[in-house]
Design a protein around this nucleic acid. Structure first.
Lengths: 215, 215
DNA sequence: GGACAATCCATAGCAACGTTATGGCATACT
DNA sequence: AGTATGCCATAACGTTGCTATGGATTGTCC
């Protein structure tokens, strides 16, 4: 009754190879025939495993989110939640700029569907939790009863903005990084953080940069 | 000696039709044969006028920047430079979200080249000048001797960030608009603007929304 | 253990894509 | 008027994603 099962190794190889091609050469470089050729299978394998090229691209995005999540998870909670927060921002920025084409595929290439939204949202939670801990520590007196998710959205919007400008060649990397950090610092100031503490946390974050996964 | 000159009407029709297709149906809807068909010419006309499909897409981006510039130019200087600034931000946001596919083509679809950078930069100048007038009016005491372009970059980065998140379906329109305005307000607070004045300027800007071009 | 049935994947063909070659015909200068 | 120059219409080429067909392989049942 039961027929031949699909080979999980073929499926994994397709995703991994596709992610590599997209990450190194961009979306346009990923073609059906080339993918099948590099994996050493036939074009039909893509259709039995994913149904369409678009569905495979979605799996590539999932892979991208998984890698981003791993980077963020490498940032451990410390006694200075704002240093943790700064380090999360750095991990996000470095992930995006180290694999610009993958970031483009995840966030820029087109409207994401609901499936992506779910897998992307849990990476956002790392940011929300860090900000929540900053609030508990009393670092943002001016943002008293605010939902941490609201504040996290401000930080994410600004981060995504500068990353996008850099990836679009509208800003050189050094300017993007500098204005991003000064912009986020402005948010902290507006939320009432003590400037001396802000500086101390930033210094502590800088000392912990080695925690971040390589790349 | 001199041969038949290229018809400027054909060229204009190609650009206008291409911009309409991209704006209404997105980048993927613009194909060579369809464009030639709708304009009522042959596929070769595209190559005599633009040389390649990619060069025509660049003209579409130029057209998009021209439209954005017209929107920004419709905001006249008033005695309240921060109201002007807020209105410029609204004009930018409304332009982008009213023609999301055109904004995508201009800023999101791929790395822009140097030609785009030049045409895009002069729209940025509207923002720089408004912030310069805010500085002259003493609205940002904490940002004393800072270059207006630096501050404008912060505002632009945040604006572009939330616009991009909305266009990517990562944020619903109402949340994007709300967090964008509250984020920009945070920047003003961090730069030392008097909260009462900030509110008054925002109210004045709201009353002037009709100045903006329709759409 | 052998027949069966289901289905994965290899081969071949389709429409549509951007681009290039070819050629007729209109146009501006001698 | 004649001519040469180059715009634009027609046709073909290679590559794209996708579908139709068919052979090979594997799990199940008697």
């Amino acid at each position: 009754m039961s027929p031949r099962p699909p080979d999980p190794a073929v499926r994994a190889a397709l995703i991994e190879t596709a992610a590599r091609i997209v990450a190194t050469e961009g979306r346009a470089a990923l073609t059906l025939r080339r993918l099948a050729g590099e994996v050493g299978t036939s074009t039909m394998a893509v259709y039995t495993h994913f149904g369409s090229m678009e569905e495979l691209r979605r799996e590539v995005r999932r892979e991208g989110f998984a890698r981003l999540r791993a980077r963020l998870a490498a940032v451990r909670d410390s006694k200075d939640p704002m240093a943790d927060l700064t380090l999360l921002g750095a991990a996000y920025y470095l992930s995006a700029t180290a694999s610009p084409n993958l970031y483009r595929a995840m966030f820029l290439d087109g409207p994401v569907d609901d499936g992506d939204l779910g897998t992307g949202l849990d990476t956002f939670m790392y940011l929300v939790k860090a900000i929540g801990r900053c609030l508990e520590a009393g670092r943002f007196p001016e943002a008293g009863g605010t939902d941490p998710a609201e504040l996290a959205l401000e930080v994410w919007g600004m981060t995504h903005g500068f990353v996008s400008l850099q990836l679009a060649n509208l800003l050189p990397a050094d300017q993007a990084a500098e204005h991003l950090s000064s912009g986020v610092r402005s948010l902290f100031v507006a939320w009432g953080d003590d400037p001396a503490k802000t500086g101390a946390s930033a210094a502590r974050a800088r000392r912990r940069l080695a925690e971040l996964s390589p790349g």
